[in-house]
């Protein structure tokens, strides 16, 4: 057998084997959460590489080595799931660098971190003033996690509105001009509805590259032809506007009429509409 053929056969077999092994190791390996996993990944790759090129290495030896390197981490992760102590030992603990807004110099020294490096890591997280940080910890994988002081945290919608309704994930209903029935069913909609919506926008299914439905049943599309402008869904804004108009109408009628009974009715309706707007506002914004 010529050498090149053997290399080819070996390479293909190892490629398939590696594919199976990576599936076995799972997604955790990809994120390289610990230094150990990082090293395992590199080593397996290196062994596989030299195995496919170096014909002096016998296949049995190489496979033994790869199996040990891949099965050992699997075993470790299984034990880690069971025992917290083992987990701490294998994956390491995080080290607190800043607590109550004060830098812990001893912990910095323990991790051989200089203050410059700490500042650099903070800057990477858009923090330029150490005084803004309430708590910071060095994770086992070397990342710095920080908690800003309450006053320096970014404003969220929950801070301004007491009640914010949940919004479900949007569903992708058209991809490459093809209607996807399963997400459409998840959104409790059907092809007939989709056709009608597209007709309203004046586009054909074939011209749609991507279309998504949000949890209010509003459709947004991206067309192949980027010169065509598609209107944004405005149903909710329009509804809010017409509700406000109705409220104003009722108030106006209440002022204009001389009939006592009608006046009372209009005033009550204006109040009711006001209440309705208040109730629906969180959903319509």
């Amino acid at each position: 057998m010529p050498a090149w053929l053997e290399v080819a056969i070996r390479s293909i077999c190892i490629l398939i084997g590696l594919f199976v092994i990576t599936k076995l190791l799972g997604k955790k390996q990809l994120s390289k959460l610990s230094f150990f996993e990082y090293i395992v990944g590199i080593t397996i790759g290196d062994i596989a590489g030299s195995m496919s090129m170096d014909l002096d290495i016998r296949l049995t030896e190489g496979i033994t080595s790869i199996l040990i390197w891949s099965l050992f981490p699997v075993a470790i992760s299984i034990i880690s799931l069971r025992s917290k102590k083992f987990r701490d030992f294998v994956e390491g603990n995080s080290t607190v660098f800043i607590k109550n807004g004060k830098i812990l110099e001893d912990n910095l020294k323990k991790e051989k971190y200089t203050i410059d490096e700490l500042l650099e890591q903070l800057r990477k997280k858009d923090v330029f003033r150490v005084a803004d940080v309430e708590f910071a910890t060095l994770e086992a994988n070397g990342d710095l996690s920080i908690l800003l002081k309450r006053a320096k945290q970014p404003l969220t919608i929950g801070d301004i509105q007491p009640y914010v309704p949940e919004e479900k994930e949007p569903q992708t209903v058209i991809m490459d001009g093809e209607i996807l029935d399963e997400p459409l069913a998840t959104a409790r909609l059907n092809r007939g509805w989709l056709k009608q919506q597209l007709d309203q926008m004046g586009v054909a299914v074939e011209n749609v590259f991507l279309a998504q439905v949000d949890s209010y049943g509003q459709l947004t599309v991206d067309l192949y032809d980027d010169r065509i402008q598609v209107p944004e869904p405005q149903q909710k804004q329009l509804l809010l506007a017409s509700m406000k108009k109705a409220e104003a109408d009722f108030e106006l009628f209440a002022l204009q009429t001389n009939d006592k009974e009608a006046k009372q009715m209009y005033e009550q309706q204006a109040k009711q509409m006001q209440q309705l707007i208040q109730n629906l506002q969180p959903f319509l914004l």
Binding site: T186, A187, R188, S215, G217, K236, L239, L280, F283
Partner: peptide
């Protein structure tokens, strides 16, 4: 229409 097409139960009830 919004009550029918919303998938969020809370929104559906409100509408």
């Amino acid at each position: 229409q919004l009550a029918l097409t919303s998938t969020n139960d809370e929104a559906q009830r409100a509408f």
